[in-house]
Design a protein around this nucleic acid. Structure first.
Lengths: 202, 202, 202, 202
DNA sequence: ACGTGCGGGACCTCCCGTTTTT
DNA sequence: AAAAACGGGAGGTCCCGCACGT
């Protein structure tokens, strides 16, 4: 069942989890910069002062949301980097990323596309490196500017495509479509048999 | 016809053009919601009052930026819709869209990805319909949820990939890569085996 | 009896004393109004709730600090008022005050100079009277406006001069200097070889 | 004519001068940290937003108040440092300082004694140096810790004594008393029958 | 066209004091 | 007795828009 970020936390930490969930939802609707603490507090039914007890600043709140997601993503990256060939590494990265996004539908768009969020992410060297590694992996089959462009295309494209507003589609099928689209865009031959992709032009 | 961004600039060379350019830059850096009139005024070297003389509200400013772009995009859509087969229509839409994005690098990301901007766009029925038509065209080869997902993937992916921060790449080559990636992701066979290069816009 | 600051501490050694000490230190650094309970709690390593258990309000905390000091000062005043001549009374007041300040270096400045503290002091009629009596004693040799001015000069001057940041000086010597300066400013002839050193308080 | 700080400005800059005057008054009554922008705005009859147009931060406001005063004081210090003997330099500093304080009755106490203000002053290296020079001058006749203590005594004492609440006394006489008290406290012989009245500043 | 002064109202931060829990 | 959760509310910053002047 669609494990969200807060799966574990949700059970006991009554309010903190709700706080994060509501925040994500509002960030999605109004963008990070466009969401005030007041809006979050109103949605939760209590006051800004209460929020302050859990997160001293709005950016702390954002950190608490994206932090776990990026840790999750780091696992995927770590695994992918252990692949033997550049092709395998890229494919692992892609499938892992797609699964990661689908598992966190509704959070992903905020994480990856909101300029307000990206500004915060770029300010954190560790997170910045993470994204760099991801791009490197995805563009591994084709380094250089072209590879970077494709990698960015896929990363942003997938992130945007999982937005629930895009289409009413089952998680499993969604993941399939994303992987298929990603592989083609990156020029990765679908590992077994079916070659939807024509031989690479240099 | 009807004034592209640069056209309008030519008329009013004095300040209006600089105002728009600076705004776009700041919207890109800080997101639409994260950019205040004060920031824009400071960057321009004059005061908020001066801005007010050109645009009565900050949203007006946004309209002035995205309006021409969307008109431009509408031309592409109109043309694409005249295609004979679904495949041709999707391909036209894709190539036209790629050219449109490349021609407006640096504006595109704001236009297509910033949630703050999207909220404004969604509020305008006309613009909302425009996006719907674009999705319909791109997913035309494969209607249904899967098609919508792929179309969204391509639309957002391309928009994100043109960001100058992604890679230092020549406009022509960038366009090629985008089209190639888009075609593959959408499952469009590279028609007539050639000419990834679209009709160039200024 | 008349518990001095340290006395009270001995009883409750656990926290109350540290609480007061830390508060005084922070009041000195940031002024009374500029010091929040949070700052005090942080410095102590525990939470605001803990403070609230000892003092129901921040003003209570202030009272607990200045109260004992003012009682101590009242003793000095009482004694001084028993002097036979105006000159002797003023001199007693001066020496006693100097000793009092030196014995409470670091607290004195807050007590006597911080406008935020003075506001609280002025609100308490008893304490207000106390200061009036002190001024009367010091200016006794020369009543009228000039006397009041000199008395204020001495009172504030001495209070400020005991601040440890002013000079690294031994308590005994400091007291000497203060008395000498005070006597001269007030126009009190250093009475017939009487030691400048006052009766030492613990 | 009790020249205030804003003499020149008062005429034309309608509100800015009032803003400063009101602020000084409230700082005196409630201490710097104890005075909110709201209080100032209320007293002036307009809003915090209006204040923001003149001073972007509360500390700016403080700077605008103490800045001119310290410049004035620097003139005095410069002049005093040109004296030939240590005694003369100290005496010049004293008389000049007294005149400076009397000329700015009501502002002086805030400037010199409020811990909140001192914190800001200490944070500014230039202003910090200024105070150091002043102490050096006053303690010049007797360097070392004892001299510093006396200098601090005089500086704070005089500043506190000019507070209008201390005594209803004419400016000229006040100045006389301050100089007399200061000289005695510092151990400066009233030099060669020179009038106690200092050179009047505008 | 542009600068200035200002109103009113958010924003985030954070504070103080209470309640609830351990 | 200490910690944690929370409610109100105020503080400072700052923003947007509108008067004016020029």
């Amino acid at each position: 069942m669609t494990s969200t970020v807060n799966d574990a936390a949700a059970a006991d930490t009554h309010t903190r989890a709700r706080l994060l969930a509501v925040s994500v939802e509002l960030f999605n609707r109004h963008s990070y910069e466009g969401t005030s603490l007041q809006m979050i507090a109103d949605e939760l039914g209590f006051t800004k002062g209460a929020i302050y007890h859990h997160f001293r600043t709005r950016e702390d709140l954002l950190h608490a949301i994206v932090g776990p997601l990026l840790e999750q993503l780091e696992d995927v990256i770590d695994t992918a980097e252990a692949g033997r060939t550049a092709h395998a590494r890229a494919d692992h990265m892609l499938t892992g990323y797609a699964a990661h996004l689908v598992a966190n539908r509704g959070v992903a768009a905020v994480l990856s596309l909101d300029p307000g969020v990206l500004k915060v992410l770029r300010a954190n060297p560790e997170w910045n490196r993470l994204i760099g590694r991801q791009i490197a992996l995805l563009s591994g089959a084709d380094p250089g500017p072209r590879g970077r462009v494709k990698a960015s295309l896929v990363m942003a494209g997938l992130a945007a495509a999982v937005d629930p507003r895009v289409a009413n589609i089952d998680a499993g099928e969604l993941c399939e479509v994303l992987i298929e689209g990603g592989r083609r865009a990156l020029g990765l031959r679908s590992s077994r048999g079916r070659s939807a992709t024509p031989p690479q032009r240099s």
